[in-house]
Simulated scan of single mutants.
Amino acid sequence: MTVFACAGCGATLSVPMSRVPLPVHVDQRYGHGLLGVLMEPRTYAVNPDPFGPPWRPWAEVGAAEAEACGVYAPVGALSGGSRGAAVLAPGDVRGTVFIPARSGGLCCGLDGRDGPNLACAQCGRPVATRIDDCSLWQAVWFDPAAVRRVAGAAVRPQTVDWEALRRDRPGVPPVEPPGQWHPLWEAAVGAALARLLAVSAGTRVAVPDGLVADTFGRALDALLPPGPPVKTLALAGPGLPTVSTSIALVPQHPQTGEHWAPPVTADAVPLPWDVWAQLAFRHDRRSVPGAGTMPADARRDDPSPLTPFGLFRPDVAVFLSTLARLREVRQPWLRAIYDRVTGHPYAGPF
């Protein structure tokens, strides 16, 4: 376990935490309402990329410097902040106070535009950035230069194995009440779609029926050239039979970040466990005609499954951000897709 402390005075700034992978929806902007908390309680993740201001426009950065930072296609701007910022849930933060002069936000809260907006309550040193504005996932980002990680409780959380995950963590349903697609799904599919295109080599991909086709099929049809399928896509992971496929959608362990190892002949495309598990094991109960009628005194205790209002749309910003950070985007055919989506981000399938 890890506890964060002020690098200036040593004051404790968090509860004991366990490190987990950086969520796929960490940079997502969604809708116009208040979103939930990004991180699960008592967990933190580390961002390997620079975080926060100052922001440098692409024209100032240039392709060569951007590639050195792991960005291989033009983006609007690159962060000039520090690498290694740790993100955790606001409820797990201790011993901080707001900095009134840095309370910039767009609408309903703080968006971090002014840099660190939380200070150590003991010494006044700026230590973190709280984000809780509408359209943004609620989180606190510790400045790696202002805090240090120290050993916390000696007891380490037990890593759950794949079978226990399958049994105890069914995942996040794809549709929220009253009928919107879940934002985590839109972000996860957006990131996986970028990686899927990269391993497709620009050829048509056959997609299995069901929820996989609902979430990936339309996008692949719109982005890849027409023609007969050359590669096949299938789910692979714990509890599923081994199948022969070109590309495998595999789960990412929510604690360790480990990817399930697919068959040796398949290219692996990871998905967060909470999305993959629903793709693999969800069984929709669809209404079908039946003989006769239910008795008048019968009562059902299983509500009908939620159905979405419209077609699924991957998160275009997550898709482009992921694609820009894949070396494969330098290939002309994939760069053409990147440029086309960047120029028309609201065209199908987005």
Rank of each mutant, 00 (worst) to 15 (best):
T215E: 08
A68W: 06
V61R: 08
D27R: 15
V288R: 15
V140I: 12
Q158R: 15
R149C: 11
D133C: 09
V3I: 15
G91S: 13
A191Y: 05
A291D: 02
I131K: 15
G104T: 06
A187K: 13
R299N: 10
A236S: 08
S103Y: 06
R83M: 06
L196F: 00
T43W: 10
A268C: 06
Y338I: 01
Q278F: 04
W273Y: 04
P241V: 02
S200Q: 02
P16A: 09
L249G: 02
C134P: 02
V275D: 00
D209Q: 11
M294R: 12
P251V: 02
R19W: 05
F319K: 02
V20D: 11
D49M: 07
S103I: 08
T307S: 04
A119D: 09
G95A: 08
P116C: 13
P177L: 09
A139M: 12
L220A: 01
F312R: 14
D27F: 09
P157R: 15
V97N: 14
P262G: 04
A191N: 04
G239L: 03
L249Q: 07
L13F: 10
P21N: 07
L235A: 04
R313A: 03
P314I: 04
R102Y: 05
V243H: 01
G290A: 13
W333A: 03
P16V: 10
W260I: 00
A324D: 02
W137V: 00
Q122R: 10
G104N: 13
G257L: 03
G190A: 03
Q255E: 12
R125E: 11
P178D: 00
R325L: 02
R282K: 14
F51T: 01
D92M: 06
A336D: 15
P57D: 09
P254G: 09
D133G: 05
V15N: 07
L136W: 05
G84I: 03
P100L: 05
E65V: 00
A7L: 13
A86W: 04
Q122H: 09
G10D: 07
V140D: 14
V155C: 09
L88A: 15
P48T: 01
P251L: 08
P295M: 12
P177S: 11
P23M: 08
A121H: 11
P157D: 14
P173H: 10
L249W: 01
A296S: 13
A213R: 15
G179Q: 06
Q158F: 05
L196S: 04
Q331H: 05
V318I: 11
L136M: 10
G124W: 07
L136I: 07
G292H: 05
V46S: 15
A236H: 01
L223F: 04
L271D: 00
T232N: 03
L106M: 12
Y30L: 06
M39D: 11
G179R: 08
L233N: 00
A89Y: 06
V24D: 01
Y72Q: 04
A128L: 11
P54R: 14
R195N: 02
